[in-house]
Design a protein around this nucleic acid. Sequence first.
DNA 1: CGGAAACTCGTACTTGCGTACAAGTTTCCC
DNA 2: GGGAAACTTGTACGCAAGTACGAGTTTCCG
Lengths: 196, 196
Amino acid sequence: MEAASPARQARGQERVEQILRATLAVIGRGGVGAVTHRTVAEEAGVPLGSLTYYFGSKQELLREALRLHVVEDAGRLRALAAELADSGADGQQIVDGFADVLESGHPDIAQFELYLEAARDPALREVAAESLRAYAEVAEAALRAAGVPNASGAASVVVAAIDGLGLHRSAAGDKAVDLRAALALLLRALSPPSGA
Amino acid sequence: MEAASPARQARGQERVEQILRATLAVIGRGGVGAVTHRTVAEEAGVPLGSLTYYFGSKQELLREALRLHVVEDAGRLRALAAELADSGADGQQIVDGFADVLESGHPDIAQFELYLEAARDPALREVAAESLRAYAEVAEAALRAAGVPNASGAASVVVAAIDGLGLHRSAAGDKAVDLRAALALLLRALSPPSGA
DNA sequence: CGGAAACTCGTACTTGCGTACAAGTTTCCC
DNA sequence: GGGAAACTTGTACGCAAGTACGAGTTTCCG
């Protein structure tokens, strides 16, 4: 059901991954619009023919690349969530942690491109949803550790705010958005027991 | 300095607007990637040649279209802000107001495409920043009316959260994100005087 | 060791793109 | 009413895109 791809050998797997990573690099640099078989082939250092050999279409290539991005991201995030759940970090540490993640450019351009692409390609919906779930888990673990009351509900707000801040930052330039201040304010507001 | 465009006559202005609106429609439907001279020309019902006559390049067309989007949005939003500032709405009304805006699909796909495009095209930075300013004004007016303490600081968080929620909603499907609940939680958290 | 399956890769085809442009029409103003 | 400037539009050019493919090489397994 995976198109007409032949069963892959070990060598092939490597190449597939190499191509997918190159695709993500291209997306990060120039967005989904910059992805062409030729740019990806050059980035990956493979001949043009490889792309059509391993991927039935450009759309399939895009989908698989974004899927890889999410799988890896989700893995890393869940590890971080487990870590946060153990060591009881306080509010300030959490703010710093989130801000660091944001400033190291983490909510990558690729992440936003995934969202927009998923808005159009139903096959990516589930991938996007999985990504959101992973983010929410980390946020929830962090909030719970910080003693925030309704951690489960608050998590989705925090994730939305983080993505929003990251997006605004990418769009308007670094100086226009004060990440740390905004996050601190949000965390402080959520902290005192107020809602049931 | 506006390229080699000749001074426009009244008739020309209409056509320019028609083309720009068609461009926004195409973006809304298929993203920036779907914008081609041909798709826009068909959408606008004008011949292909018109596009090159009025716009020196495709990039210029894109920029002007997004600029128009922001100018109109900003105008409408500022009017709404003024309205909110007058009639003292309570928290629940504000949540409902925001949620309605979100559910009517307002933070349009075009808005998100603008953000991503601005991340790559410096000429769009200022446009994106203006858009964010307008959003922040509305949010601030609403929060102030609701008696939120640090309305100015909180506004940017609220705007980020709204954009984030809208984006997640577009990406993962309507049911995956509970807008109203998330917004209500956020507003409730911000409401009691806690931060200075 | 032999053949089938997986893989490699240069090349070529078709399509759709941005853009240019020439030949025409309308509009405006003196 | 005449001429210049604004506008209109069909057509065409060159290029880059996605994709197809055939001829070759490697890898695996019975």
